[in-house]
Design a protein around this nucleic acid. Structure first.
Lengths: 234, 234
DNA sequence: TTAATTATTTTACTATTTACAATAAGTCAA
DNA sequence: TTGACTTATTGTAAATAGTAAAATAATTAA
């Protein structure tokens, strides 16, 4: 063996573990990431991805939930594991390995408020993320890649959109995510197989013909996936 | 802040970190995983995914390379990060977080030999993986899912196949990975856009019309990806 | 030389995607 | 109330991709 647990115990059990939570939302045609302003050293005053150290008895995902709530007041959201970052010098105060988690939320339904050692929170469009604390820019880039992959293979776009949305908003979301322009008529044809609930309600306070509002029919979607050979693909 | 680095230093810097390497290969129509037999406690005598503790000054991927070489004699392969596992009780001797890496190799080009604390190595078809040490079955399942996703979005199938392969072998690889049967003529149409080098050589020692041998044209592939809007999709 | 086996190509058909045009439905201001 | 304006929604034809089945080619073995 390349080591011996008993002799080298202290040498090997000397690392620390953190989680970072990348919370994505969609607002005014832009996909945004939730950032906090650090109230403490290191990187005091810098913007960062919300994250903190994991307790010794805590599971990783459990820690992510707790820490996200402590810093931003957001709770009860589904967190997905992203990549883990462990360069020996990534944290100035010791060997801290961080495991990134990400989630898609409806910005108007979660109520992000800075607390604990976060001074401020803000939603920043993913195309305008500033220089962040630690290696958080690297963490962001790799998680964004994962978000894009998920967007094209799972119906997570509906986690980002409000409960009732227009088809144009859905299109804008994909256009922004992939930095492309899509044809409206063809986009609607493409999403035909996805089960949506059509509401009688319409868009309000717009200066033009208001668009119909839709919701994702999750129940019907699950049925399709299980019964037929249905697969979400965008 | 939910803690203070100086006061709680020992409490938080008390974790250990390991990496586990999932090495996939392809042989006789089956995708296989490389396992080692543990020569030491805990789980002495059990089959496991090759892995060990990371040194304090070592980067994660660097550690994965070193450990893989120590245990199996395999080196110079490209490792991709998979998921991280950190349940508080996953390791009987303390809080050990493990970061999984995986790789696709050509079985006949790497020379897997057990060394260090590995008693034996063997290639096991992924559809017949036994009960493994620790939470290694969970790690395997989640990494296999990732392998499937990669197989359909990146040309990693050619990392598994020998340098020169028949189109039937390529098809068998996908059939085994997804547990499906594919139509031979249609499969060939589907792979038409992928640039392959056609050799004059043919299969040998077969009792029937030998198939032509092909290689992946990596250079042409890169050109396609960069110049046009080409995307690998299976 | 012929049967058997598998590799590879061809054909015809069906479904999906794309580009573009046309029509419908609402808002706003005169 | 009308018509200009904006956006939603539907329609159509061409191009592309996917599917099923049959035809042809190359090799081995008897």
């Amino acid at each position: 063996m390349t080591h011996n647990y008993k002799i080298e115990f202290e040498k090997f059990f000397s690392y620390s573990l953190s989680v970072d939570c990348l919370i994505f939302g969609f607002e005014e045609g832009e996909i945004k990431l939730l950032l906090i302003k650090r109230n403490m050293d290191p990187f005091k005053g810098d913007w960062a991805i919300p994250g903190d150290l994991v307790y010794p008895e805590e599971d990783l995902e459990e820690a992510a939930s707790r820490i996200l709530f402590d810093l931003t007041n957001i709770k009860n959201i589904e967190l997905h594991q992203s990549q883990t970052f462990g360069k020996p010098d990534r944290h100035p105060q010791g060997r801290v390995i961080t495991c990134a988690y990400f989630a898609m939320v409806k910005i108007d339904e979660v109520n992000a408020i800075a607390s604990s050692w976060a001074n401020e929170v803000k939603w920043v469009p993913i195309q305008r993320i500033p220089k962040l604390a630690f290696d958080h820019n690297e963490i962001f880039n790799s998680s964004l890649e994962l978000l894009r992959i998920k967007l094209s293979n799972e119906p997570i776009c509906f986690d980002l959109l409000p409960d009732k949305f227009t088809l144009n908003e859905l299109q804008q979301l994909y256009e922004y995510a992939y930095k492309v322009n899509l044809n409206k008529a063809n986009f609607r044809k493409k999403i035909k197989p996805i089960p949506l609930i059509e509401h009688n309600e319409k868009q309000k306070n717009v200066k033009h013909r208001p668009a119909k509002l839709f919701s994702f029919d999750e129940h019907k979607f699950e049925k399709l996936v299980n019964q037929r050979n249905f697969r979400f693909k965008m």
